[in-house]
Amino acid sequence: MHAPLFEAVPNFSEGKDNAKISRITEAVRAIPGVRILSLHSDPDHNRSVLTFAGEEDPVLSGALALAKACATELDLASQSGEHPRMGVLDVLPFVPLEGATMDDAVRLAHKASESLGFLGFPVYLYGSAATNPHRRSLPDIRRGGYEGVASRISDPLWKPDYGPKTLDSHRGVVAVGARPFLVAFNAYLDTDDVEVARVVATRVRESGGGLPAVRALGFGVGGKAQVSMNLTDLEQTPIPVALEAVRSAAADLGASVESTELVGLAPLEAVLQAARYYLGLRELEADHVLESRLYGRSDPRRL
């Protein structure tokens, strides 16, 4: 029996300096047993999303190596970008993969948080790892970015779970969580009016009365208005349903979707959901995909 596998999807606050991004990434790659799956860097958001996987101990070591590299390479006090941020290592979620349960991911999140605390990072736990109901949602923790956290940290309700109880303006804080798969999906509109993207985001996100399990914000990226979404439960709202909601809301404002973007990775089921929706393939499953039948489960070429 194989040891349980985990995915880590850290977001760190650098998307412009390729040399720094490379050094931070290489610190993780150097850990034996870690497999880097994806790196997505966005200069407008000034943010990178790294995805890596492995067994518990290598993933934990990779996360700590990443944190040390971020503390060495980055300075939050001089960082700016479209995306809200509160730390050089901003978010560190753990996702249970084959053989692992959500409880396993929660334990890993607590282990990582304790070690990050010893390294000098204030840590807030979120998602399934949250220790307080009012801190379960990541947007609630990140509200107002670093400045918002700084204004709340002296409140006993917002005392960090691990690490220092005061802020270092150069490294900030980190949110560590345990969660299921999340798909980060962006839609670019055929306008440069950021206000249009913000209105669309408000209409489609759950907190605005829109779709369940959808978080959304509007940004200006590369001269285009962008609706940036996190789809937190694909059973409730798959990618095509979210996209059609954006299209409808944008059309009401005289805009349309010009292109879309996947940030990081998505599970095969997310792609199959899109194919079923747009092609009308009611019975499409993974076994209908050639590579899934051609290669065995242990073959990395299998989807």
Rank of each mutant, 00 (worst) to 15 (best):
G148A: 12
V149S: 04
A150W: 06
A150M: 13
R152C: 13
I153W: 02
I153V: 15
S154M: 11
W158P: 08
W158D: 10
W158E: 11
K159T: 15
P160W: 05
P160C: 11
D161L: 09
G163C: 10
G163W: 06
G163T: 11
P164N: 12
P164K: 08
P164M: 07
K165C: 14
K165S: 15
D168K: 07
S169N: 14
H170F: 06
H170Q: 14
H170P: 04
R171Y: 09
G172F: 03
G172Q: 04
V173I: 15
V174R: 00
A175K: 02
A175R: 00
V176P: 00
G177F: 03
G177M: 07
G177C: 09
A178D: 02
R179D: 01
P180F: 04
F181Q: 10
F181S: 10
L182S: 03
L182Q: 08
A184Q: 01
A184C: 08
A184S: 14
A184M: 01
A187N: 11
A187G: 03
Y188A: 12
Y188I: 10
D190S: 12
T191Y: 05
T191E: 06
D192L: 06
V194H: 04
V194R: 14
V194P: 00
E195S: 14
V196P: 02
V196H: 01
V196Y: 00
A197V: 07
R198G: 13
V199N: 04
V199M: 07
A201T: 08
T202L: 15
T202C: 11
T202F: 14
R203Q: 15
V204N: 00
V204Q: 02
S207C: 08
S207G: 11
S207M: 12
G208S: 05
G208C: 07
G210L: 11
L211K: 03
L211P: 04
P212K: 11
P212F: 07
V214H: 03
V214Y: 00
V214P: 00
V214N: 02
V214Q: 00
A216L: 09
F219R: 04
F219K: 05
G220C: 10
G220S: 14
G220M: 09
G220I: 07
V221D: 04
V221M: 11
G223L: 07
G223C: 09
K224A: 13
A225I: 04
Q226K: 14
Q226E: 15
V227L: 08
V227H: 03
V227E: 01
V227T: 08
S228A: 15
S228I: 06
S228R: 02
M229P: 01
M229A: 07
N230E: 09
N230S: 12
T232W: 00
T232E: 09
L234A: 04
L234H: 05
L234I: 06
L234K: 03
L234W: 02
L234R: 02
E235Q: 13
E235N: 12
Q236H: 12
Q236P: 00
Q236G: 07
T237H: 05
P238F: 05
P238T: 08
I239T: 06
I239L: 14
I239V: 15
P240I: 11
P240V: 13
V241T: 15
A242N: 10
L243D: 01
L243N: 01
